[in-house]
C-alpha cells in the first residue's frame, strides 16, 4: 500500500464510500425520513377529511388503541392467522422435504412445480382464490360439496379457513426448501453409520437429523412468522378483511384506518405498535442469522 502513488491510495480510500453513498442516501430519504415524520404524526389527532391542522394529543392515540377491545381482537385474529398458517406450513413443508430427500426420476421437475406458487403475484393468488372459493362456480366449493354432501359457502362461513388455506398453498414450499436444504447438509457418513448401528428411526432423527436441520428450521419459522404478520395483498384481495371484520388482520386494519376512514394520526400510531412487534421478531432473527 505504501509503495503506491499518493493519488491512487486516496482514490482507494474514498472509492468504497462513493460506491455505497447512493444506496444509503436513498434509504435515508425514503425510509428513515418518512418514519420519523410518521412517528411525529402518531402523537397528533389528524384527519385529512376534516381539513383541520393536526392537534397535538401526546400519547392519547397509543393509550386509546391499547385500551381498545377492538384492537386487541385484531391482535388475536392476526395471531391466529399466523399460528395456523405457519404451523400447517411447517408440517406440510417437513413432509414434502422428506419426500423430496429421496432420489427418484423426475424429482427436480417435481420440486420446481411444487415451488411455483412462491413466485406468483399475491394479488393474482388472492383474486383467483375468490373464483376457486366462489359459492356457486368455485371448484373448491364444488369439491367441498362432494365431500360433505351439503353446499358450503367457504368465504362467508369459514373465512379464516380460506385465508389460511391460501397462505398454506403459497408458502409451504418455502418451508420445504429450508428443511430440504437442512436434510441435504447431513453428512452421508453419519447416516450410513446410523444404519450400521441399527439406530431406530426416532433415535436417528433425534441425534442425527434434528441437530443439523434445527438452525434452518428456526430461520424458516422466523421468516414465515414475520411475513405472515405482514400479509396484506392476498387477504386484501381475497376477503378484503371481511365478511365484516372476520379476517381483518392488523395490516388491513391499518390500511382501512388510514385510507378509508382517514384517521391518519391513529393509523400511524397503530402502525408503530405493529412495527415494534416486527422489530422484536427481526431482532431474534438477526441474532440467529449472525450465529449461523
Amino acid at each position: 500500500m505504501t509503495s503506491q502513488p499518493d493519488t491512487g491510495s486516496r482514490i482507494l480510500k474514498i472509492f468504497p464510500i462513493i460506491l455505497i453513498f447512493p444506496a444509503v442516501a436513498l434509504v435515508v430519504f425514503l425510509v428513515i425520513f418518512p418514519l420519523i415524520w410518521a412517528l411525529g404524526l402518531s402523537f397528533y389527532s389528524y384527519n385529512v377529511l376534516r381539513g383541520e391542522p393536526p392537534i397535538f394529543v401526546g400519547v392519547e392515540n397509543y393509550y386509546r388503541l391499547l385500551n381498545s377491545l377492538d384492537v386487541w381482537r385484531r391482535f388475536v385474529l392476526t395471531g391466529q392467522f399466523v399460528f395456523y398458517s405457519v404451523s400447517i406450513e411447517f408440517l406440510l413443508g417437513f413432509g414434502l422435504a422428506h419426500l423430496f430427500y429421496n432420489q427418484f426420476r423426475g424429482r427436480r421437475l417435481a420440486i420446481t412445480l411444487v415451488t411455483t406458487p412462491l413466485l406468483v403475484a399475491p394479488v393474482a393468488v388472492g383474486i383467483f382464490h375468490r373464483y376457486l372459493f366462489d359459492a356457486t362456480f368455485g371448484i373448491y366449493s364444488y369439491i367441498a360439496q362432494l365431500l360433505t354432501g351439503q353446499s358450503v359457502r367457504i368465504l362467508s362461513q369459514h373465512p379464516m379457513f380460506a385465508i389460511v388455506f391460501m397462505d398454506v398453498w403459497q408458502w409451504s414450499p418455502f418451508m420445504m426448501l429450508f428443511i430440504l436444504a437442512g436434510l441435504e447438509a447431513i453428512p452421508k457418513h453419519m447416516l450410513e453409520s446410523s444404519e450400521i448401528d441399527r439406530l431406530s428411526p426416532l433415535a436417528k432423527f433425534r441425534y442425527i437429523v434434528w441437530p443439523t436441520i434445527k438452525p434452518l428450521v428456526a430461520l424458516a419459522l422466523l421468516f414465515r412468522t414475520m411475513d405472515a404478520f405482514r400479509t396484506f395483498d392476498t387477504i386484501f384481495t381475497l376477503t378484503g378483511g371481511g365478511p365484516g371484520t372476520a379476517t381483518e388482520v392488523l395490516s388491513i386494519q391499518i390500511y382501512r384506518t388510514a385510507f378509508q376512514f382517514f384517521r391518519t394520526g391513529e393509523a400511524t400510531a397503530l402502525a408503530f405498535i405493529f412495527l415494534v412487534i416486527i422489530l422484536l421478531l427481526t431482532n431474534i432473527y438477526l441474532r440467529l442469522a449472525r450465529r449461523e
Partner: peptide, 8 residues
Amino acid sequence: PAIVVAIP
C-alpha cells in the same frame, strides 16, 4: 411492513 411506511 410496507403499510407502516405507506402512510407517510
